[in-house]
Design a protein around this nucleic acid. Structure first.
Length: 476
RNA sequence: GGCGACGUAGCCAAGUGGUAAGGCAGAAGUCUGCAAAACUUCCAUUCACCAGUUCAAAUCUGGUCGUCGCCUCCA
């Protein structure tokens, strides 16, 4: 049984899907105003592992990740005009239209998703293409009398939703006391959040705009997730995932909107990815201490090592990101891949009766750890032990073709979650005939030097062969 | 100021009441130079600190210190 730590109840709970055998997952995706960094991806990778493990367990998974391509207001230092929208700021910076900016960064994002081998979601809905649905939902909220209109927008009255604050553990009264939110005179509470913003004041010249019953303007940040998750996955989600920083106010507001509009629980399980840390500071766009996937590839790290680094640490612990970690990850992956090559190339001899039971117990341990709130580190340990035992069996008793298939089948099922192993048999590269002759001569030459114990010359020849792409591994 | 998470070896990281997984790095050895891979052995009397509960605590309770996150756009 899969147990998941539910951020809403703050307890581990046994997973039960809304519909038998099916799972709906909604993940808060990127805001496409600049390059997503690996900290962003670590949250998406958490969802990816969840999706893949549920598939591994045989569930029919439907996964939706939104693309936020509507600019939302910002007050950070990125722009001088106070309160300029991020997309518009990027548009000025890069001299492109807001639409071009959004599409450009969305394309980069989709490219990175493929590089990091995230399982393709069933749908990546764009906020700008669902403004109709958002307006419909706001209308429902209006009928339920939980919203009010001011000169600059339409707001959700959080006093009408008693559970507001439960997810983040915030007490609204207490929040108000230590508030850093600028008081908007027209709002009843500083924490009432916008559903619709009008083109007035600092938003007068907002470029992305739509008509609505409340005047021309643009949607608030939170409503898109409520509207799109409902459209594609229904009123009650099995899982809602995102970064922990989205808990408040974003997810809190989504719950208020959706549950008020639908009169149903919004999500049964909430999963939040802890922040990625760099030098004891969060990795974030505003601090500028981030790496993008492309940055790391340029430094020579493989997509697999990036993926493994973020996947192998439990999603609820802070991951301190370093380049050393990428190197370690690569070593772990190499260890698996070396094992796979060893396995593929080992001679098929006799049936080995121990193989099945080794696989069985490894699988059991692996699943036990994964079932415990996706404990990947715990699940990895038995796999290292597995490789050791199998190697021993092959060296001492040999294996049959059937055994090999069994082992590979198991490794592939594990890899359906990790996606970092390489099952392709590494064959000797084909050399041209002239190269072949040279290589043979060089090997002979080296053997000659070795028999003469002329190690200096022998190593020189080995270096030369290495340069030609020929690896020399001495065996007894 | 309010809310939350966390503190396990040189590093990364499991373990949440029954006597410290695993990986990396390191040390020694086997494989008749070296290197690579593999294998064998070693590498935390102790889990930030202090009290308490218990036959038994890294695990539970209280306190102290420290770190990080959220409370404003962020995954």
């Amino acid at each position: 049984m899969l147990e998941i730590y539910n951020s809403y109840s703050k307890k581990k709970e046994t997973f039960k899907p809304v519909a038998e055998g099916k799972v709906n997952i909604y993940t808060c995706g990127p805001t496409v105003y600049s390059n997503a960094h690996v900290g962003n991806f670590s949250a998406f990778l958490m969802a990816d592992v969840l999706v893949r493990y549920l598939k591994y367990k045989g569930y029919d998974v439907k996964w939706v990740m939104n693309i936020t391509d509507v600019g939302h207001l910002t007050d950070d230092n990125e722009v001088t005009d106070d309160g300029e929208d991020k997309l518009e700021a990027a548009s000025k910076r890069e001299n492109k239209t807001v639409w071009e900016i959004a599409r450009h960064y969305e394309d980069l994002f989709m490219g990175d998703i493929r590089t990091l081998k995230l399982f393709p979601a069933d749908k990546y809905p764009r906020a700008t293409e669902h403004v109709e649905e958002m307006i419909e939902m706001i209308k429902i909220l209006q009928q339920k009398e939980v919203i009010y209109e001011t000169s600059d927008g339409v707001y959700f009255d959080i006093s009408k939703f008693k559970k507001y604050g439960k997810l983040s553990g915030n007490d609204i009264e207490a929040l108000q006391a230590g508030s850093r939110v600028e008081i908007n005179e027209d709002k009843r509470s500083a924490y009432d959040f916008a559903l619709w913003k009008k083109l007035t004041g600092k938003n007068e010249k907002h470029i992305m705009q739509w008509d609505s019953p409340w005047g021309t303007g643009f949607p608030g940040w939170h409503i898109e997730c409520s509207a799109m998750s409902k459209k594609y996955l229904g009123e009650t989600l099995d899982f809602h995932t995102g970064g922990e920083d989205n808990k408040f106010p974003h997810h809190e507001s989504e719950i208020a909107q959706s549950e008020t509009a639908n009169c149903k629980p919004f999500a049964n399980y909430w999963m939040h990815k802890s922040r990625v840390i760099v030098n004891n500071e969060k990795m974030s766009k505003s601090l500028g201490n981030f790496f993008t996937v492309q940055d790391l590839l340029k430094l020579g790290y493989t997509p697999e090592s990036i993926r493994f680094t973020f996947v192998s640490v439990h999603y609820r612990s802070k991951l301190n990101f370093t380049e050393e970690k990428l190197v370690e990850s690569q070593k772990s992956i190499d260890k698996f891949n070396d094992f796979i090559q060893f396995l593929i190339k080992s001679e098929e001899t006799v049936e080995n009766s121990s193989i099945s039971s080794i696989i069985k117990s490894t699988k059991q341990q692996f699943e036990k750890a994964m079932d415990d709130d996706l404990n990947v580190s715990g699940a990895l340990a038995p796999l290292f032990g597995f490789m050791k035992s199998i190697r021993k069996q092959i060296n001492s008793s040999g294996i049959s073709a059937k055994n090999k298939d069994e082992i590979l089948h198991f490794m592939k099922s594990i890899n359906s979650i990790f996606e970092v192993f390489d099952f392709e048999e590494k064959k000797e590269k084909k050399l041209s005939i002239s190269d072949q002759k040279t290589v043979e001569e060089l090997i002979k030459k080296r053997e000659q030097f070795r028999s003469e114990k002329n190690w200096v010359e022998a190593d020189k020849v080995r270096d030369e062969l290495n340069k030609m792409g020929v690896k020399i591994e001495d065996k007894k």
